[in-house]
Amino acid sequence: MKPDLFEAPDYYDLDDLLSEEHILVRDAARQWVKRDISPIIEEYAQKAEFPKQIINGLAEIGAFGPYIPEEYGGAGLDQISYGLIMQEIERGDSGVRSTASVQSSLVMYPIFTYGTEEQRKKYLPKLATGEWMGCFGLTEPNHGSNPGGMETKYKDMGDHYLLNGAKLW
């Protein structure tokens, strides 16, 4: 394990633009990355393994759906806080940041925005705690990661769904 020696100089006085809450949120994410990600991530990258033990920590710093209201398990933060959390996680590892941002923006956000109240109450709290991890099947052989070109389709068969298509990763 190697220590995280990052000091975060603020050459442009950007902290002056942040609220006290934003700085607290950012600093909590920064400290978590320094303590729990930086020392282990190179080893996991070399093994091509995801460090599953970090899921609880991501949830604890509010990285899963930080802008989701507290009544659904989120932290009820604003989009600036979300960006600050993701920026700090990205500094530690892009794959870990992708895990948090996919869970937040591609899984939780659509449920919060387009789901029923029943779906919000069922799924969002467990996604916010990391008890459940979502996924987003985007990449396809003929279109890469272009959602407008997706060919995979589903058909409601009454008691089940029929899914046709191919995904590629």
Rank of each mutant, 00 (worst) to 15 (best):
D27N: 15
I61G: 06
E20F: 09
P69K: 01
P125H: 05
E7R: 09
R35G: 05
E118P: 06
M86Q: 11
S94E: 14
L5W: 09
D93T: 03
L138F: 00
S81N: 10
Y82R: 15
T113W: 00
A128G: 09
Q79H: 12
V96R: 02
K47M: 14
S105I: 00
K52A: 13
A59Q: 10
D93C: 14
T113Q: 12
P51S: 02
V107T: 14
V96I: 15
E70A: 13
F136A: 07
E118G: 07
Y11H: 13
V33Y: 02
F112C: 02
R91I: 02
N56G: 13
K121Q: 15
G65I: 03
L106V: 00
T99A: 14
G115K: 02
G74T: 04
P66C: 10
L77M: 14
Y72L: 03
Q53M: 11
L18C: 12
G134P: 12
G134T: 09
L24F: 14
I80D: 06
L58M: 15
Q87H: 12
E60F: 07
P66W: 04
G134C: 10
S81Q: 06
Y67S: 15
D16L: 11
Q87L: 13
F136T: 01
A128K: 01
E70M: 12
E117L: 09
G115C: 06
Y67G: 05
M133W: 02
Q119I: 07
L138S: 02
I40K: 10
Y72D: 05
M86F: 06
G130K: 04
A48K: 13
A75N: 09
A45V: 10
P69W: 00
Y67N: 13
I80L: 13
T139S: 09
Q46H: 11
A100Q: 05
G74K: 01
K121F: 05
L14S: 07
D13F: 07
V25D: 06
E70G: 08
F136L: 03
E60D: 15
Y109Q: 14
D78H: 02
D16E: 12
